[in-house]
């Protein structure tokens, strides 16, 4: 990053007021914000271009979608679908963390448990979680239990595998230091192994969240009605049934937006803070 703020041209030093800004500090967030918006704006432009170039085809313009979104928002459909899905996503993910974390510790530390369940948990990542939907509907009916079951089957393996991978990569020297400092098995896990595995754990959490959200959408899309509230996935399905492409696109964009916002405001800052604290921030490297 060029630190032009502190550079003074040779001849101008006497005439220009000397303004020394901390290198790039105040310029960076603005530039960063503009760069983040560049992708969506480009996408929007391309979309509009397609609408202009292929009139009459099965496409709706961005403004149609905006109108549909405003209408659905005003009717209350959108806020209620969003809160229903977000609530399920967050609760499901939290459950996955609560279940996955002790599972991972058990896989890493208990030999027979690792032998018995390690390959299974690794393999489960490959199984698309929507494949669980039919079975879950037969077991639990059209209830929230079905949704949470599918979400957990999708996200628990990711959380487990992230933490297990992290714990496997803890440098042996750290454990020796722990032993020398008098740490028992419990203190070793609490004060040495878990903190050392934290970056990989966060990577696992990020993937776990993504799988939660994807599984949730899949479950909502396939299983609807009964005692299930209407979430974003159901909204998507409803739009398809009514041949309402604008509503379909509104739902899709909202699903995507939630994913992007979670990344921007939760996982990226968390990962950045961890990396900076440990001196692993690539931007800090010179």
């Amino acid at each position: 990053m060029p630190s032009d703020a502190t550079t003074l041209a040779p001849g101008r030093a006497s005439t220009a007021p000397l303004v020394v800004r901390p290198a790039g500090r105040d310029a960076r967030p603005v530039r960063h914000g503009a760069a983040v918006l560049l992708g969506p704006v480009a996408l929007l432009a391309a979309w509009q271009l397609v609408v202009w170039l292929a009139p009459g085809a099965a496409v709706v313009s961005p403004s149609d979608v905006a109108r549909a979104a405003a209408g659905a928002w005003a009717r209350g459909d959108l806020p209620s679908a969003l809160t229903t899905s977000l609530g399920r996503g967050v609760v499901g993910f939290a459950l996955a963390v609560v279940i996955g974390t002790p599972l991972a510790i058990a896989v890493a530390h208990v030999r027979w448990f690792r032998t018995a369940f390690g390959p299974l948990l690794k393999g489960l990542v490959v199984l698309p979680s929507v494949a669980w939907v039919p079975a879950a509907v037969l077991w639990f009916g059209l209830t929230d239990a079905t949704v949470y079951f599918v979400v957990l089957m999708g996200s628990v393996p990711s959380v487990v595998n992230g933490l297990v991978a992290g714990m496997a990569q803890v440098p042996p020297l750290y454990r020796r230091v722990g032993t020398v400092l008098g740490a028992g098995p419990l203190a070793m896990t609490r004060h040495v192994v878990l903190p050392a595995a934290l970056p990989a754990y966060v990577a696992g959490l990020r993937q776990g969240w993504a799988f939660s959200w994807r599984s949730l959408m899949g479950a909502e899309l396939i299983a609807g009605g009964g005692r299930l509230g209407v979430g974003l996935g159901a909204l998507l399905q409803e739009g398809r049934a009514l041949g309402d492409l604008a509503t379909v696109l509104v739902a899709m964009l909202l699903i995507l937006t939630v994913g992007v916002l979670a990344e921007l405001f939760a996982f990226a800052p968390l990962e950045g803070r961890l990396a900076r604290r440990r001196g692993l921030d690539p931007r800090a490297a010179r």
Binding site: L173, Y174, R176, V177, P195, A196, R277, R278
Partner: peptide
């Protein structure tokens, strides 16, 4: 015991 490397915990 002190090791050849400082072996400090970076977190």
């Amino acid at each position: 015991l002190m090791f050849q490397e400082p072996a400090l915990f970076p977190w």
